[in-house]
Design a protein around this nucleic acid. Structure first.
Length: 856
RNA sequence: GCCGGGAUGGCGGAAUUGGUAGACGCACGGGACUCAAAAUCCCGCGUUGGCGACAACGUGGGGGUUCGAUUCCCCCUCCCGGCACCA
């Protein structure tokens, strides 16, 4: 054994050993419980970043731990290889996106191998390979035939100067990132997947996902957004037909004072026909990005259309406005505005002097005497008198208008609503919807916020959409035997549009149905398409006859999925959707793809996400070169719990490296004294252990329990490491070299190697070779704790007086509550507080923990 | 704007079910070793007062529940992630 910790040598040897022995090659084996551990595959951006190191180390720790626990583990790896950055790099470097991508994959694969991941590289996939995307093209055609994919127009960001569609990311402050031109919204026909047909199941099945973080399930629930409301129709004055809106607050219908439609709404278009000012306003609304965050934070603007609608219940005529805060894509693209009970409507009404009419009061308010209708043009808006108002027992005569509003976006009791007065939310919703129903002007309806998934992209570096357009036969899916539709890889990118859109050899074809001249679809699929089913392909990575074969029955669902919290909604929802689609075409049997989910936090530097644009990246390669993979892995796992963001610190790496050096040194000094068998009770006939060694063994076996629990249940790798550090600190204090001490030291070191091997596998394998030359660490299983070593004779209690720590009390393990109370009251640090006629009011004893004496 | 998270010493974090706040590590200070430095080892290290024993304060801010709150409830501030074409 070398005296210095030779990390380079150790890591190379271990990695060669794993490769030569195919240590991590996964095989179906019904005798063992399977454990499919999947980390989100990387986009091959060029070099590994710290987020990758963190993600893949977490996955590797869990994989290796479960392997030791006797599971049949599969940990695969692949490449999410289509995407926008390849096109940008290709334009910048004048190379083909494919070449750039394949070179990046080669480089990053080398880097990943240096991390020492227990990955089955035989199963490697890259989504840009025809063997892979052939199958999603096949699924696309199947779903198209089933009617689960359809075409409709959708809005995109259009750069009028570059003549290209821009991603939301490429729109900066409403302008194209390259051209600087004002971006326009443009409607083009695109393919959509009917994810809304699965909305109910996607929502309900969240309840089955006990192994998912609650926050992720909540985000998905809110995203799917099932709401119970009412559709209301407002007859349009002087026109045939009604303006339909959807509302979750039918109880406020009597307070509606105007109706607002999106700029894209048909009524807006109609009104703009002979109203140039309105047409200009609509055009203005259509400038800027389509991203919801931009729309929602924009200043609220609107313009009257000149149309009026009739209130379905009270017959009042309400103006129709075009408003930029109404989303065309949600509900009906039109809303009834109730300024008194909706903050956005209120802000809008104030700005444009629209009436505000309060119709809901908190439950305990005296409704009859409340004056409720005001116009914002009044000069004394901010101080209104509301006579006889009692709010939850509190008397108040004057209310600020803004307080009034604050109170009233919640549910309450109807006021100023005629026959609905006095009804609560549920009652008035029922009564108002049935009133609408009887007039045939509305009904109850559930609504999802979730929209169908637009999968068309006007880009080159993606999977071609397998549709042929024939003037006679229409849209014809490419027959299975003609798949894949290959994306040509040898292209030049000029920055203006997609090369395949200008390449007749790609798009000119014949119709599979009538054999006449036809053209191929030149849009490609959203790259989320590829990442929505790769987890299933790993099980059947080499199957060339089916998308997935019966091996998927064995491996699926994924037992543990690990990836960034930023994927909490989109990727994870699409993958769940695809799992159900594949189930429904008979490929797999499970309902949900990922049984357990661990969402890792970001790696930050100076408080913000490491990114090239911010220039605050730390290259993991330098870290591995200087300190080795084990140090990199140890630091990553030690610096923060996996689900929290991790602040990068160079000095912390130094500390991790120091610990491994100390560990190596401790083993070296021990081994250089010669062989010794690990202490165990069965061969303990060497007399009583000293108290010191007994305590060390107690700590060892408590640590074994804690670390197993931290890995398996808590995923708390940082505390697992710190408890092993404490154990090593305790071991370092023992200097004796007699046979018994050495046997206990051997026991500790052997177990430390096992406990740490999921995190720092290379050094642990080398330590084991030296500690136990006859065996191999990969054959060793997870250690069991020795219960007899953990029996303690005494218990230490914390003693509080009035909740403040005042001392400690050591009692025998069997001491009764009464004995503990008596002993506590005999302590000086308790009695000194018993002065001036005070007495003991109460004694609280928390078994094995704490005594609190309440004195008063 | 909406949805979801987060905030604890100089720093990263610990406290697992309401029960010792600050484990473990970093940084820093002192000491040992050394001609010296690095490395290594030992000691100290929330704030304030005190020679000390000890005492008071202390988990983003304000309120509440409790014998006891970093933990539960209400309100607020700031930061992070997502918002459907970045992946």
């Amino acid at each position: 054994m070398q005296q210095q910790y030779p990390f380079k040598e150790i890591e190379q040897q271990a990695q060669q050993y794993w490769e030569a022995n195919q240590t991590f090659a996964a095989k179906e084996d019904s005798k063992k419980p399977k454990y499919y551990c999947l980390s989100m595959f990387p986009y091959p951006s060029g070099r590994l970043h710290m987020g990758h190191v963190r993600n893949y180390t977490i996955g590797d720790v869990l994989s290796r731990f479960h392997k030791m626990k006797g599971f049949n583990v599969m940990q695969p790896m692949g490449w999410d290889a289509f995407g926008l950055p390849a096109e940008n790099a290709a334009i910048a470097n004048k190379t083909a996106p494919a070449k750039w991508t394949y070179e990046n994959i080669e480089h990053m694969k080398t880097q990943l191998k240096q991390l020492g991941l227990g990955v089955d590289w035989n199963r490697e996939i890259a989504t840009c390979r025809p063997e892979y995307y052939k199958w999603e093209q096949w699924l696309f055609t199947e779903l198209f035939k089933k009617g689960l994919i359809y075409k409709k127009t959708a809005t995109v960001n259009w750069d009028p100067v570059d003549g290209t569609v821009l991603a939301n990311e490429q729109v900066i402050d409403g302008r194209g990132w390259r051209s600087g031109a004002l971006v326009e919204k443009r409607d083009i026909p695109q393919y959509f997947m009917k994810i809304t047909a699965y909305a109910e199941e996607l929502l309900n099945d969240l309840d089955k996902l006990d192994g998912w973080p609650e926050q992720v399930k909540t985000m998905q629930r809110n995203w799917i957004g099932k709401s119970y409301g009412c559709e209301v129709e407002f007859p349009i004055v002087g026109q045939n037909g009604n303006l339909k809106v959807y509302t979750t607050r039918p109880d406020t219908l009597m307070g509606a004072t105007y109706v607002a439609v999106a700029a894209e709404h048909a009524l807006a278009t109609l009104a703009a026909k002979d109203n140039p000012k309105l047409a200009e306003f609509i055009a203005e609304c259509k400038r800027g990005s389509v991203a919801e965050a931009d729309v929602a934070t924009a200043e609220k603007k609107g313009m009257a259309t000149g149309f009026f609608v009739t209130h379905p219940l009270n017959g009042e005529q309400l103006p129709v406005w075009v408003a930029n805060y109404v989303l065309a894509s949600y509900g009906e693209g039109a809303v009834m505005a109730v300024p008194a009970h909706d903050e956005r409507d209120f802000e809008f009404a104030k700005k444009y002097n629209l009436p505000i009419k309060a119709v809901i009061a908190p439950k305990s308010w005296n409704s009859q005497k409340v004056t409720t209708s005001y116009h914002t043009s009044g000069s004394n808006l901010n101080e209104r008198e509301f006579p006889s108002i009692a709010h939850d027992g509190e008397q108040s005569g004057i209310l600020n208008w803004f307080d009034w509003l604050d109170i009233f976006s919640e549910h309450g009791t109807c006021i100023n609503s005629g026959k609905f007065d006095g009804l609560n939310f549920e009652q008035s919703s029922d009564a108002i919807s049935s009133a609408l129903n009887s007039k045939n002007l509305g009904k109850k309806r559930t609504q999802f916020r979730l929209r169908d998934w637009g999968v068309s992209r006007q880009r080159y570096w993606g999977c071609p959409i397998p549709i042929i357009h024939c003037t006679k036969c229409g849209e014809v899916p490419v027959p299975a035997e003609a798949l894949p539709v290959r994306i040509p890889e040898d292209v030049t990118m000029d920055g203006v549009g997609s090369p395949i859109k200008k390449d007749p050899s790609f798009y000119e074809t014949t119709c599979p149905t009538c054999n006449g001249n036809a053209t191929r679809e030149t849009d490609t699929l959203d790259t989320f398409f590829e990442s929505s089913w790769y987890f299933a392909r790993y099980a059947s990575f080499d199957c060339d006859t089916k998308m997935v074969d019966e091996r998927a029955y064995y491996w699926l669902p994924v037992d543990q999925y690990v990836g960034g919290i930023e994927h909490a909604i989109l990727h994870l929802l699409y993958a769940r959707f695809f799992n159900k689609l594949m189930r429904d075409v008979g490929l797999i049997k499970n309902d949900e793809p990922f049984t357990n989910l661990l969402t890792q936090g970001m790696v930050l530097k100076d408080g913000s996400k490491m990114s090239k644009s911010k220039g605050n990246t730390v290259d993991p390669q330098a870290l591995i070169d200087t300190y080795g993979a084990d140090t990199a892995r140890l630091f990553m796992m030690f610096a923060a719990p996996p689900d929290q963001s991790l602040e990068w610190a160079d000095s912390g790496v130094e500390g991790a490296s120091r610990f491994l050096k100390r560990l190596w040194k401790a083993a070296y000094e021990h081994v250089s004294l010669g062989k010794v068998k690990a202490y165990a009770l069965s061969n303990s006939g060497r007399g009583e252990l000293t108290a010191e060694l007994k305590n060390l063994r107690l700590q060892l076996h408590l640590t074994i329990e804690k670390v197993g629990d931290d890995y398996g249940r808590r995923h708390s790798f940082n505390t697992a490491i710190s408890s092993v550090m404490e154990l090593m600190n305790a071991l370092a204090k023992i200097e004796a070299t007699d046979e018994v001490t050495r046997s206990v030291r051997q026991e500790v070191l052997q177990n430390v190697a096992l406990l740490l091997s999921p995190i720092v596998p290379h050094i642990c394998q080398a330590l084991w070779e030296n500690l136990c030359p006859a065996s191999h660490i990969l054959c060793a299983s997870w250690p069991a704790s020795d219960k007899t070593a953990m029996v303690q004779d005494t218990v230490e209690y914390v003693v509080q007086v009035n909740g403040k720590l005042r001392g400690n009390l050591t009692v025998s393990r069997e001491a009764s509550k009464e004995v503990i109370e008596t002993l506590t009251l005999a302590q000086d640090f308790v009695t000194k507080f018993l002065v001036d006629g005070t007495s003991v009011r109460k004694i609280i004893v928390v078994p094995n923990k704490l005594v609190n004496v309440v004195i008063g």
